[in-house]
């Protein structure tokens, strides 16, 4: 029982970080019909910005802020302006060519990091380091609790922003029906840009939280990207809470499988879940089959 609680909690903590990446993925998909195959690399890269900032002498908190700003600019603004927008202007956004372009972007980011920073896994400072708590016999790490709290806090904040503020509602309108939103005076282009910026910020946060666990390595994105897709689809591609549930579910399942069933096939469980969900409930566990919301 104690062990189960431990496994469950650390699964939830990792899962909540996956959920951040998955939510960003969902947002961009909803707002711009862009399936971002480079999402994993978007989570890999910000950690390297932190390392670069720290190498040039900045303290950790300042380095985090600089990295966040750079990531939002590069992965949000530049990604939209330099890749997604020109493709949509040529009338082929959302199609196969955009998928290929984001795949190429993933290679580009990965290889650039490998070439200009290094192929070795780099140690990365933890955001929160704490001891352990003893809750009813279960040893629970403070870091896990903090990760869970931060991620859930961000998700709640984001939901409030999208539902309660004028900008948030305009973003939802853009995702649901761009044409009507535009008629009603919403600057849809700007709203889509906001979505990209939010995605970049979420990916950076996920990066800051997860990199201490995996160490900073150029190839981190391959696994993280796959998990983000799976979480987004399993939970329901058109809902924030779906992506959240998907992320948590994958995190917990992964841990439970590794501990109790098979370590060899732990990576297979999310994939089987993905195939099953797509075949039998394509709208996802929490998704609705029609209509889209941010």
């Amino acid at each position: 029982m104690e062990q189960f609680l431990q496994v469950l909690l650390s699964g939830l903590a990792t899962g909540s970080i996956y959920a951040l990446a998955a939510i960003g993925f969902t947002l961009v998909w909803q707002a711009a019909q862009t399936v971002n195959f480079a999402q994993g690399e978007f989570v890999m890269l910000p950690a390297f910005f932190v390392l670069i900032a720290m190498n040039s002498g900045l303290p950790l908190p300042l380095a985090l802020i600089v990295a966040l700003a750079v990531s939002v600019f590069v992965l949000g603004f530049l990604f939209k302006k330099a890749i997604v927008e020109p493709m949509q202007k040529h009338g082929n956004g959302g199609g196969l060519s955009l998928i290929i372009a984001t795949m190429a972007l993933a290679i580009f980011l990965k290889e650039s990091v490998k070439e200009f920073y290094g192929a070795e896994a780099q140690p990365y400072p933890p955001l929160i380091s704490g001891g352990t708590w003893n809750i009813g016999g279960a040893i629970v790490s403070v870091t896990d609790i903090a990760h869970l709290a931060i991620s859930l806090g961000v998700v709640v904040g984001l939901t409030l922003f999208l539902n309660r503020t004028r900008t948030g509602r305009a973003m939802q309108a853009t995702a649901q029906n761009p044409a009507v939103a535009e008629i009603l005076g919403v600057d849809t282009n700007r709203m889509v840009l906001y979505t990209f910026l939010i995605n970049a910020a979420l990916a950076s946060l996920a990066s800051f939280l997860i990199t201490p666990v995996y160490l900073a390595k150029f190839s981190n994105g391959e696994y993280l990207g796959l998990i983000a897709f799976i979480a987004a689809i399993v939970g329901g591609f058109n809902q924030i809470r779906g992506a959240l549930a998907g992320g948590l579910l994958i995190g917990v399942l992964d841990n439970i499988t590794a501990t109790y069933i098979t370590a060899e096939y732990r990576a297979a469980i999310p994939l089987v879940l993905l195939i099953g969900i797509i075949l039998f409930r394509p709208q996802g566990l929490l998704g609705t089959s029609e209509g889209r919301t941010v």
Partner: peptide, 20 residues
């Protein structure tokens, strides 16, 4: 040397933007 994958991915992105 190591830059070829970088050049290559950039070429693919440009190709996809201008000639899908």
């Amino acid at each position: 040397q190591g830059y070829y994958l970088i050049l290559y991915s950039v070429a693919v992105i440009i190709l996809m933007v201008y000639s899908p």
